Simulated assay, not measured.
Amino acid sequence: MKQDIIANCRNALYQILFYGVMIIYFILLFFLLFRKKAAGSFQSVNLIPFHSISAYLFSDDMVSRAFALSNLLGNIAIFIPMGVYLPLLIRRKSIFVNTVCVALISAVVEVLQYIFAVGSADIDDVILNTVGGLIGVSLFRVMELLLKDQTKKAVTVLAPVGGIFSFLILFLVNR
């Protein structure tokens, strides 16, 4: 009886931690993606795949290359957690379905950024975000294979650590 109460309390704590961290991630992601850009920034649309990526990577300007690296890695990194959370939220659909969901969410974000004038709409961002989501979904699948029924608990414990680490790296790269 006492062990059942302890187990129920532990499960409730895991649920609170899991959903709390997930909500914090989505709130931070929202503010990161929809923060108002600096004065003088411009609105643009890029519908040519890899146009921005190649322009950044093959630039002769070191400042552009440094920005490119932070932009490329940042767009990938911020969507890895979404790839981990999605299979838990939509009940373990295939890697393909989860990755398509990430791509659709990213495309909607890009359109909204343009509509609300808080950024440029760039197909390259959708590609990079989708790669991040695919990495996250793949990490989830590996955890699921290794940990079986303990996957959600592992995500609950590892997500805060990974999230803090990811946002710290993004902060340091973008200083």
Rank of each mutant, 00 (worst) to 15 (best):
I135G: 00
S44Q: 12
A68T: 06
V108L: 12
V109M: 10
Y25L: 02
M22W: 04
E144W: 15
S138N: 06
F30S: 08
S52I: 03
F31Q: 05
F31H: 10
A77C: 03
R35L: 06
I164K: 00
Y85S: 06
K93P: 13
A154Q: 09
S106M: 09
V97M: 02
Y85E: 05
N71G: 00
F18Q: 10
M82W: 05
A121C: 12
F18M: 05
D4N: 08
G20R: 14
I23E: 02
S41A: 12
F50K: 02
V137I: 12
V131H: 00
L47H: 04
D122F: 09
V131R: 01
Y85I: 12
L147H: 06
A107R: 03
T99R: 07
F116T: 11
I90Q: 07
S166A: 13
F18N: 05
F31Y: 12
G40M: 04
D125P: 11
G83I: 12
H51Y: 15
I105W: 11
R175I: 13
I135C: 00
A39D: 15
M22I: 06
L147S: 07
I80Y: 07
I53H: 10
N46S: 12
P87K: 07
S64E: 13
T151F: 10
V111C: 14
A154M: 15
S64T: 13
C9P: 02
K93I: 09
I78S: 04
L86K: 11
L112W: 00
L170C: 04
S41L: 02
A39Y: 13
V131D: 01
R91V: 02
Y56R: 12
F26N: 02
T151A: 02
S64F: 08
Y25W: 11
A107F: 08
L112F: 03
L69A: 12
N11T: 11
I6T: 09
L29I: 08
Y25F: 14
A39Q: 14
L69I: 15
K152S: 05
L88K: 05
I127D: 04
